[in-house]
Nucleic acid binder design. Structure first.
Lengths: 212, 212
DNA sequence: TAGATTGTTAATCGATTAACAATC
DNA sequence: TAGATTGTTAATCGATTAACAATC
């Protein structure tokens, strides 16, 4: 089956997980893997894994399974991690600071080109130059930016989101604990730490609710 | 309908969102809200909201809707944010640092009591005391800890997880980009930043895949 | 070839939505 | 009372799992 559009969100959310496991299998030098083996290490069913992958193509071979390296490469193309991405970071508080320093993303080809906050500040040995948020619209006019990261306080995030959308970013990675609205088809992905902690809290208080 | 166990994960994951919106409605001084109004601001259907809430009780009133303050209080009890939580942070890298400084959680009653990392270090004006990870098992023996936060490099996270589980934490909030396994019924909640960024990347490259 | 495992269809299961009687 | 809106059941929709023919 060829590439199929309209893949459901549930499937899409599992792709990074497949990629991650394949990477680690590949790192261990393993060459082939079956959906059954993948099932055992991911905890998903073999059936689901095969069906998920078949939304994008026939990557396996009957009687053999999947070539690890090959499937990994296909997934990297499907997800888009085979490309490089230019990012700007808006909000240099605690989270923003951590994201800026986080090496793994840079290694994967995601690079933060500029950092914006309320107060401009020169670069020093620890931190990058902080550009005044007022200059963000101009920056976006003059530089193609793929992803805007929002790590501002929640009161500012919708406004920043608007600026980023008007500046034609392709996607927004939002860390502020509110639901913001994008326009011009800008893709939004939220990391709601508060919701995550609350979900954890819920289960801590309701151990009987495990119905997995 | 009374409290109903075996609520599905989808429902549970929406509770923090309800709480967040109710909080903001309450802050604006609004006293009553209908499922229809909640539907408009959350983007969920009124039917779903009513059904979700009815897993836990009958909090509304026909012809009126819900009392904002009352529903908020109920939700805070359901989620468990009405209580205080003692946490330890393991791994004082970029993310760990950010989480330590993040004020919002403290205000909500989540407090980081101790920080562990490979190298012990005295407290200074910016940072807390860092205790050697070797002392973590003893610490857990002598202090009740509700939640362990893992923000170590991925190679260390399963080991840290084991120590936390043996030390009888109730839940683990994992920021390392691997799937770890808990034991002794310890609840696990992952924040997989890499997966989140990859999902964003996917949609950036497949704008046609919006089927919401 | 025989064994293994895929790709894909059909069956099942669960979650969401629609509808409406109950009732404030 | 009349209007509004809940709680709850029934209908629909979608996602997961099971099964198996195809085939390496």
């Amino acid at each position: 089956m060829a590439k199929d559009n309209g893949v459901s969100l549930s499937v899409i959310k599992r792709l990074p997980k497949y990629y991650r496991y394949l990477e680690s299998i590949n790192d261990r030098g393993i060459v082939r893997v079956s959906s059954k083996e993948l099932s055992e290490i991911t905890g998903l069913t073999a059936s689901q894994i095969r069906q998920d992958l078949n939304h994008y193509g026939c990557f396996g071979q009957q009687g053999y399974g999947y070539n690890v390296r090959e499937l990994m490469d296909e997934l990297s193309k499907i997800i888009g991690v085979d490309k490089k991405y230019k990012m700007v970071l808006v909000g240099f508080g605690n989270i923003g600071h951590a994201l800026y320093k986080y090496k793994s993303f840079q290694d994967l080809g995601y690079h933060i080109d500029a950092v914006f906050d309320l107060e401009a500040r020169e670069a020093n040995e620890n931190d990058p130059e902080i550009v005044s948020i007022e200059k963000l619209p101009d920056y976006l006019k003059n530089n193609k930016v793929d992803i805007g990261i929002i790590s501002t306080p929640k009161d500012a995030s919708q406004e920043v989101c608007d600026i980023l959308c008007d500046g034609n970013v392709d996607g927004i990675w939002n860390f502020s604990p509110v639901d913001i609205k994008t326009k011009n088809d800008v893709v939004l992905e939220n990391v709601h730490l508060d919701e995550s902690l609350f979900t954890l809290t819920y289960f801590i208080n309701s151990p009987e609710d495990f119905n997995f």
